[in-house]
Computed example of a mutant assay.
Amino acid sequence: MPSSGSDRRRTTVSSGPDRRGQLLATAAEVFAAQGYRATTVRGIADAAGMLAGSLYYHFDSKESMIDEILATFLDDLWSRYDGVLAAGLGPRETIEALVTESFREIDRHHAAVAIYQKESRHLQAQPRFAYLADSQAKFEQAWLGTLERGVADRVFRADLDARLTYRFLRDTVWVAASWYRPGGQHSPEEIARQYLSMVLEGITLRN
C-alpha cells in the first residue's frame, strides 16, 4: 500500500467540507461498484442526487475525485502504521498491531480499499498517481522487515520464508474488503483477533 499524499495538491473546494465529504463518499461507492473506467461524472452526480454541472463546482474531474479518495485513505493508513512502527514493539506485537490497524482501515475506508485493490495497478502508471507505487514499496518494507526481524530475533521460526509469509499476510488481510461490511456482526478488532489466532497459533486443537 502507499505513502502519504497529503503533500500533493488537492482539488479546489468551492463549498463546505461536509458536502464535499458526502460527495466523495458517494463517489467512492460508485467507483468501487462500477470501476474507474466505467464510472462517469454524470453517474456520480446521479447517485448524489445532483446535476453533473453542480458536481463540477466541487471537483474538476473524476480523476481528482478518485485521487482524493485514495490519498485520504492512504494518509490515514500511514498515520496509523507509522505509529505502530515507531512504538518500539517486538516483531510479533508489531505484526499483531499492523493486522489490527489494517482491519480497522477496511472498516473506516471500505470503498476506498476496494478501489485501491481494483485500480491501483492501472492508476499508478500515471504521474499523478505515482505515490501509489511509493506506498506499495513502503508497505512491503514495513511488513517484510518486521517478519525478517522476527526470524533474526528467533521470535518466528528459522525456516520461515519471510517473503512468502508477507505475501500471504498481505493478501489474506486485505481480501477481507470483498466480504467484510462495516456495522456487521463482528467488529474489526474481533476479526483481527480471530485472524491472528489462526495465523500465529493454528487451528488444530492442542492437547
Results as ranks from 00 to 15, higher is better:
1 M>V: 14
3 S>G: 12
5 G>W: 03
6 S>F: 10
12 T>A: 12
12 T>I: 11
13 V>F: 12
14 S>A: 13
16 G>K: 08
17 P>Q: 10
20 R>E: 11
21 G>H: 12
22 Q>D: 14
24 L>P: 00
25 A>G: 06
29 E>C: 08
30 V>N: 13
31 F>K: 04
32 A>N: 07
32 A>V: 05
39 T>N: 13
41 V>A: 14
48 A>W: 09
50 M>F: 10
54 S>W: 09
59 F>S: 13
63 E>K: 11
63 E>I: 08
64 S>H: 15
65 M>I: 00
65 M>F: 01
72 T>M: 13
72 T>Q: 14
72 T>H: 14
74 L>Q: 11
74 L>A: 07
74 L>G: 05
81 Y>E: 02
83 G>H: 12
84 V>Q: 04
84 V>P: 07
84 V>K: 10
89 L>I: 05
89 L>H: 15
91 P>W: 15
92 R>C: 08
96 E>N: 06
96 E>P: 05
99 V>L: 02
100 T>C: 01
102 S>A: 12
102 S>M: 06
104 R>T: 00
104 R>W: 00
105 E>G: 04
107 D>H: 03
109 H>K: 02
110 H>I: 04
111 A>W: 09
112 A>D: 03
113 V>C: 04
113 V>T: 06
115 I>R: 08
116 Y>D: 02
116 Y>G: 00
116 Y>V: 04
117 Q>L: 15
120 S>Y: 13
124 Q>V: 07
124 Q>T: 02
126 Q>T: 04
126 Q>D: 12
131 Y>R: 15
132 L>G: 00
134 D>A: 15
135 S>F: 06
137 A>W: 06
138 K>N: 11
148 E>Q: 13
148 E>I: 02
154 R>F: 13
155 V>K: 03
155 V>H: 03
158 A>S: 11
158 A>C: 05
158 A>M: 07
160 L>K: 10
160 L>E: 07
160 L>H: 03
161 D>I: 10
162 A>V: 12
163 R>M: 04
164 L>C: 07
165 T>G: 07
167 R>F: 08
167 R>D: 08
171 D>M: 11
174 W>A: 07
175 V>F: 09
178 S>H: 09
179 W>V: 14
180 Y>Q: 03
180 Y>G: 00
182 P>M: 14
186 H>R: 14
190 E>P: 05
193 R>I: 02
195 Y>T: 04
196 L>N: 04
199 V>R: 06
201 E>A: 10
202 G>L: 10
204 T>I: 15
